[in-house]
Design a protein around this nucleic acid. Structure first.
Length: 287
DNA sequence: TGTCTTCGATCTTCCTGCTA
DNA sequence: TAGCAGGAAGATCGAAGACA
């Protein structure tokens, strides 16, 4: 009776024996070896990419285990209620910490990497942005820059309208979570008659998807340089998931904004609600 | 010519320190 | 406490050179 395939009931290695990993390494002789990544952290990274980026893993697993226990009640008869509860809670805490760590770490790495690279994607070939957008600074992005403003302008708004443009730039006009930016559409063209037309298939999203899942160098098909297994291969990923599309769109959107911190509760970018709005649409059978 | 080894490039992951 | 920046190490694989 093992609700989750966990080899041992030991706490995470980093907390074992009260010695942190760097101290362990310092005590070891010879070349430093990278600590073996816990499989749950490894899976957690992929979980955040393609299953759900913002959900509470703790809540998800707690509820899931509760349901599973109900279904398997007959097999658990040999344990007391207290034992079952204690057993489940012990595993849930350990597992969720590891998976959450993986999901958060993957997101942080993607945010960091795409922050710089996305400038290349939005810069027309052979040209430069005027004014220049620093690679490591975000203050000059969002509605503080003409080019990123154009990309972030909500679909349906007329960016050529001076009044709308001014209100968006000075914050008088707030972009709602379900007002998707025009960069989600091919050629920045939103078709009010057919909102699905060219949605979620524009170059920035394709580049971002490749950057995360098939390696940064795979974006340039003419000169692939990757010699190392990409994320998709590492995790046996053979197809696109709805969540991965939403995740990539959210990351690209965040990289274009001036927001400094990728926070669940950030009211400026509202990344979580944006992510959920895409998922809801893709999950809607009517759509 | 085929095999093996070495080197370098790329990618993923993790760590530390810092900041809000 | 969460997230970011910078950096480093391990894994992987192609290219190049050495050698039988």
């Amino acid at each position: 009776m093992n609700p989750v395939n966990v080899p041992d009931a030991a706490p995470p290695k980093s907390s074992m024996m009260g010695v942190k990993q760097p101290q362990l390494n310092a005590l070891q002789r010879g070349p430093r070896k990278q600590p073996v990544q816990d499989p749950l952290v490894h899976h957690g990274r992929h979980f955040g990419h393609v299953i759900h980026s913002f959900c509470s893993v703790l809540t998800l697993l707690t509820n899931g285990l509760a349901m599973m226990c109900e279904l398997e009640d007959r097999n658990l008869e040999m344990f007391s209620d207290y034992e079952r509860k204690e057993y489940s809670v012990f595993y849930v805490i350990a597992i969720t910490e590891l998976i959450q760590r993986g999901a958060n770490g993957a997101r942080a790495d993607d945010t960091k990497g795409m922050k710089c690279t996305i400038i290349d994607w939005i810069t027309p070939k052979g040209q430069t942005l005027n004014p220049h957008i620093p690679c490591n600074a975000k203050s000059a992005r969002g509605f503080n820059h003409e080019h990123t403003s154009t990309l972030l302008c909500p679909a349906g708004y007329d960016w050529s309208n001076a009044e709308i443009k001014e209100k968006l730039c000075n914050g008088q006009l707030r972009v709602a979570r379900d007002q998707w930016p025009i960069f989600l559409y091919a050629n920045y063209a939103y078709d009010a008659e057919d909102p699905w037309n060219s949605l979620l298939c524009y170059g920035i999203l394709i580049s971002a998807y490749k950057y995360i899942f098939t390696s940064p160098s795979s974006i340039d098909l003419e000169e692939p340089k990757a010699t190392c297994s990409c994320n998709a291969r590492n995790h046996g990923m053979h197809s696109v998931t709805k969540a991965s599309i939403a995740y990539v769109a959210t990351q690209a959107r965040f990289a274009l904004t001036s927001a400094q911190v990728f926070s669940h509760t950030d009211l400026l970018t509202d990344s979580e609600q944006f992510y959920n709005s895409i998922l809801e649409l893709l999950d809607d059978p009517d759509e």
